[in-house]
Simulated scan of single mutants.
Amino acid sequence: MANEKKPALGASLRQKSSGVLAALLCILIGMAIGLVVLFVINPGHAWKDGFLRIVQGGFYDFPYGVGKTLTQTAPLIMTGLSVAFAFKTGLFNIGAAGQYTLGAFGALYCALVLQLPWWVCLLAAALFGAVWGAIPGIFKAYLNINEVITSIMFNWIGLYLVNEIIYGRGSGVMYDAHNTRTWKLADRASQALIPSCGMSELFHTSNTTIAIFLAIAVAVLIWVVLEKTTFGYELKAVGLNKNAARYAGINEKKNIILSMTIAGALAGFGAGLFYLSGGAEWNPLNSTSLPAMGFNGIATALLASSHPIGTVFSSLFISHITVGGAYLPTKYFPTEIADLISGIIIYLCAFSMLFRGVIEKKLLHKEEKTNVNAEPAPGAETGKEGK
């Protein structure tokens, strides 16, 4: 029995190690290509004023830059979890941007109009996102319409619906006509601001709050649900094979809807974490494109191989280089270089399965070589003598 467990344990560790090494390889190649691009644009300043600033990230302007990184990481973790959760259950939630948009509206409406406390506003953000995520799930479960198509459609429906409600022909209840955006929470609804618990003072910012800890707690909760509960097992079973799951007595339609609903709630919750931290206001006149945070979640999920805990680290990395890119001197480089690097890393993630396969073969070969060179078991020599 112990001998049977050893190979299984070794295979599991080998698989996890190969996943981490594949992600690191994607990052290294992406950073190397980014360095080459910097040298092509401006060879004289590529290293010191370019690459090193991106690598330093928020630490270039410590502690303010680090606080800014943490503020951006919290919602990115949530949209990454939204995409990763759907991936784990066999669905591609490309609608995280729309669910994020509805979550932002739910949080701001409950804060500015209903004057509710921050934790209620966060729950409302998750609820609005959940509703917007459930709709593609219902279409998928009962009409077998691809969730990618409906998610993309509802991204744009959600964006323009929110813009129309907030703008309200220039006189919406949430709308500050003078600044062409929603009212600042600090001015109109301070009770809806997520507590900073000293973090804003620590990082010398006005919007670094406990949101990052809430996001990490949710990531741990999602990992527990997926890996340690019957519900999580059923969700993954449906993702692996709907027909086999149905044969085993699992209600695949219910689980598809629940998966997309939870994914939507996670994205909506992420919007709540960002806007209730006072990080920004919603501008319906400028918000004619979908929030980048929703699509960046796809990057973090791919980089983390859809692992909930890995999503925390991949989100932190993406935010780190994005903030670093903002510190590039514009007279030498465009700030979009950081987006280029993250884009290359995302592209390489498409080859991560190939990288993982190669790395696993190397690890297996090394393991077999170690076993061959190992000393024979005590009973082996006795058996040989008996023959």
Rank of each mutant, 00 (worst) to 15 (best):
S12D: 03
L13M: 14
R14L: 11
V20C: 03
A23C: 10
I27A: 03
G30M: 02
G30Q: 00
V37H: 05
G44S: 15
G50S: 09
R53M: 02
I54H: 01
G58Y: 05
F59S: 13
Y60N: 03
Y60E: 09
Y60Q: 07
P63F: 07
K68A: 09
Q72F: 11
Q72C: 00
I77L: 07
M78C: 08
L81W: 03
F87G: 00
K88E: 08
I94T: 01
T101N: 02
A107Q: 03
L112P: 07
V113T: 13
Q115G: 09
Q115P: 00
L116Y: 12
P117N: 10
V120T: 11
L122G: 06
A125Y: 05
A126R: 02
F128A: 07
A130M: 11
A130K: 04
G133S: 11
L143I: 09
N146I: 08
I152R: 03
M153S: 06
M153T: 10
I165F: 10
S171F: 14
M174Q: 04
D176V: 11
R181P: 05
L185S: 01
P195Y: 06
S196H: 04
S196C: 11
M199E: 00
E201T: 07
T205Y: 03
S206G: 14
S206H: 15
A217D: 08
E227Y: 15
T229F: 15
T229C: 13
F231R: 13
G232H: 12
K236F: 15
A248G: 12
G249E: 12
G249S: 10
I250L: 01
K254V: 14
N255W: 09
L258Y: 12
A265V: 13
A267W: 08
G278K: 00
W282S: 02
P284D: 05
P284H: 09
L285V: 13
S289N: 15
L290N: 08
P291T: 15
P291N: 11
A292E: 09
A304Q: 06
H307F: 13
T311K: 03
F313H: 01
L316E: 04
L316C: 02
I318E: 02
H320E: 12
A338N: 11
S342L: 02
I344S: 00
I345N: 01
L348P: 05
L354T: 12
F355D: 05
G357M: 13
K362P: 01
E367Q: 15
E368I: 15
N371C: 14
E375C: 12
P376R: 08
G379I: 11
E381G: 02
E381M: 06
E381Q: 10
G383Y: 06
